[in-house]
Amino acid sequence: MTEKANLTPAQRAIGGFAPKLVSLTDDVLFGDVWERAELPKRDRSLITVAALIAGGNTEQLRNHLRLAQQNGLTETELKEVIIHLAFYAGWPRAMSAMNVAKTVFITED
């Protein structure tokens, strides 16, 4: 395994440029909040994806859709989250999110 393969996604993306934000991402977000026992990771991915869709954060949605699949949500379920949120967050955000999902799922299938 190369050294790069051992890096976290945040380290790979901005590690040398903004090490403090990377350590907060890895230690506080994924190391602490995501590890809280009250909800399983599958639910935490559902929450995260919903928040990113409603917030219009399509850039971050790409990787979180992949993580959501690793945490047990299926492509069908993730597409349904986007459809479900259309009437809450509005069609523009749902359509933008579905375009991201299409690139993620079609690339990976």
Binding site: I47, A50, I53, A54, A89
Partner: peptide, 8 residues
């Protein structure tokens, strides 16, 4: 999903 979106 709904609560997460409303909070957001």
């Amino acid at each position: 999903a709904t609560i997460s979106s409303l909070v957001t």
